[in-house]
């Protein structure tokens, strides 16, 4: 057993272990997600994170050692964010058809997401680190993490919060929209995209293509809007607070 432990820690010092651990857990999670007929409850990101975390905890491997290997996967979030321009471009004709309503909804919806998220947490006594990490929670993870870093939050905490918001919206978003009487596919898609980014979009795409396309649009534009508005909002806040 001790020999096995030694072997693990020997291997942990090469990037290979972190890489294999991430890829392996994701392959299993993705298989399980498909087995569950893409149920939002079986979200592969959540499952992989739980599996990897458990393994690291059981083997007493710290995050820095794991990240030595995982950083090669993490790094790809940057180019993937650039790639989001393509689905945005493909849906450009939808934007042109109702430019003003979409622009207005995304601007106000994006602001609402930031203010409601931070506001609720502040009322319940969250610390400043938590508040700053919560602020970008509704935008897609690569952008949210970048923003979290810029405004002084904790990117890894933001990533976890972003994933949770995505799952919540993917599970309950449709029901909430039906409850308030929003039936139009365009409005439903955009609302889910604004609040629940990639995970909500992926969910909508499996149900209805048009709703999914608008969710992708809401996600992409909200990422852009929040990336510009949030740092300015922080600047304003800091100036007002002295």
């Amino acid at each position: 057993m001790d020999k096995l432990f030694d072997l693990w820690h020997h291997l942990a010092h090469s990037p290979l272990l972190g890489l294999c651990l991430t890829l392996g857990c994701f392959v299993i999670s993705d298989w399980f997600y498909k087995k569950c007929k893409l149920s939002p409850l079986a979200n592969p990101v959540l499952l992989s994170v739980v599996m990897v975390s458990l393994i690291l905890w059981l083997t007493k491997t710290n995050y820095q050692t794991y990240f030595e290997g995982a950083k090669y996967i993490h790094f790809l979030l940057g180019p993937a964010t650039v790639a989001l321009a393509v689905p945005l471009y493909k849906n450009l004709h939808y934007v042109k058809a109702s430019l003003l309503p979409i622009a207005f909804t995304i601007l106000l919806g994006g602001l609402f997401a930031i203010i409601s998220g931070v506001g609720i947490a502040a009322l319940l006594g969250a610390s400043q680190t938590t508040l700053l990490s919560l602020a970008p929670k509704s935008v897609t993870a690569p952008v949210a993490m970048g923003l979290s870093e810029v405004i002084g939050g904790t990117p890894s905490l933001t990533a976890v919060l972003v994933i949770l918001c995505g799952i919540i919206g993917a599970i309950f978003g449709g029901a909430v929209l039906s409850l308030v009487g929003v039936k139009d596919k365009k409005a439903r898609g955009i609302a889910i995209g604004i609040a629940s980014h990639g995970i909500g979009t992926a969910r909508k795409l499996t149900i209805d293509e048009k709703t999914g396309a608008f969710a992708g649009l809401g996600m992409g534009l909200n990422a852009l809007v929040t990336a510009i508005v949030l740092p300015l909002l922080m600047l304003l806040w800091r100036t007002l607070a002295g």
Binding site: P101, I102, F104, T105, I106, L108, G109, F112, A113, S116, G117, V118, G119, I120, A121, A122, L123, L124, G125, A126, T130, L134, K137, S138, L161, L164, C165, I168, G169, F172, G173, V176, L177, L179, V180, V182, D184, K186, A187, R188, I190, A191, I192, I194, A195, S196, G218
Partner: peptide, 21 residues
């Protein structure tokens, strides 16, 4: 604060944005 904010802010944002659109 984390749980309430994540759950309620997300669902409120969805309702708000959907109605506004």
């Amino acid at each position: 604060p984390i749980t309430v904010s994540v759950v309620f802010a997300t669902l409120l944002t969805i309702a708000f944005s959907g109605l506004l659109m």
